[in-house]
């Protein structure tokens, strides 16, 4: 079995490697020290099981799991934690596998043998019950089987077009775009503090507005820093754009 161990503490990872080797000599291990690395490792190595710490810098375990669930054939995920009062209650109520550190060998063995795959409903509930750590710092998209992340802070806007939502973002200084599966409505709700809806088909980053221009035909166009073309502001959303620009 190929097992990915995700934990920001080297000692914690070391211990798991020892335990897992004792359980089965043939186990293969890969390690990651935060959520971002975990996703990279899943892409490259396609592990069967992920042992995922919850609190980690960069990207926490809950968010990483959220992204991993978007892969066609996600690995089974077992959460590990030293102490998380609220998260534990949520795990109990959703019957999600979790291990408490320091982890017992027997308990680990049992979890490996019986681990079932998480489903999205369980994960959604976990998020609802752990708002403090359930925010996303990245948006994920799947391209040819690999998961690919875009940091929220690099995003200019989300544009809806027929069936899909396109995200336009800054990729090391170059404007790039990709198609994602989220809906504009859910994105608007999730990132209400940093993004604003300006049109039925557009959601933009608030702190990136450059200017509001009136066109000859009466339409209002919003210019964003770093984005060559202006985006149309609908009459319905005009007042909220104006209000934002005044402050």
């Amino acid at each position: 079995m190929k097992i990915l161990i995700v934990d920001d503490e080297p000692l914690a990872r070391e211990r798991l490697v020892h335990l897992l080797t004792e359980i089965n000599q043939e186990n293969q291990f890969i390690e990651a020290s935060n959520g971002l690395e975990a996703i990279e490792q899943v892409n490259n190595e396609e592990p069967d099981i992920v042992l995922m710490d919850i609190r980690m810098p960069g990207m926490n375990g809950l968010e990483a799991t959220k992204h991993l669930m978007n892969i066609d054939n996600p690995p089974a995920i077992i959460f590990t934690t030293a102490y998380d009062e609220y998260a534990l209650q949520a795990f109990e109520s959703q019957a999600v596998d979790y291990l408490l550190k320091p982890i017992r060998k027997e308990r680990l063995e049992k979890a490996l043998n019986s681990c079932s795959k998480l489903n999205k409903v369980q994960l959604e509930q976990l998020g609802l019950q752990n708002r403090e750590i359930s925010y996303r710092t990245h948006i994920s998209a799947q391209i040819r089987g690999t998961l690919f992340l875009v940091a929220i802070k690099d995003i200019y806007c989300f544009l809806a077009d027929h069936k899909y939502v396109t995200v336009k973002y800054d990729k090391e200084g170059i404007l790039a775009e990709t198609i994602i599966e989220d809906t504009l409505k859910s994105l608007e709700e999730e990132f209400a503090t940093s993004f604003l809806r300006i049109h039925r088909n557009a959601l933009i980053r608030k702190d990136n507005i450059e200017a509001l221009q009136k066109q000859n035909d009466g339409r209002m166009l919003l210019k964003l820093r770093g984005l060559p073309e202006g985006l149309e502001v609908s009459r319905r959303h005009f007042s909220s754009v104006r209000k934002l620009m005044k402050t």
Partner: peptide, 18 residues
């Protein structure tokens, strides 16, 4: 802080071997 206690225990458990 319970975090500290349990994390330390985990460190000790790991260090005991190596």
């Amino acid at each position: 802080r319970p975090h500290f206690l349990f994390n330390s225990m985990n460190s000790i458990a790991s260090l005991t071997r190596t």
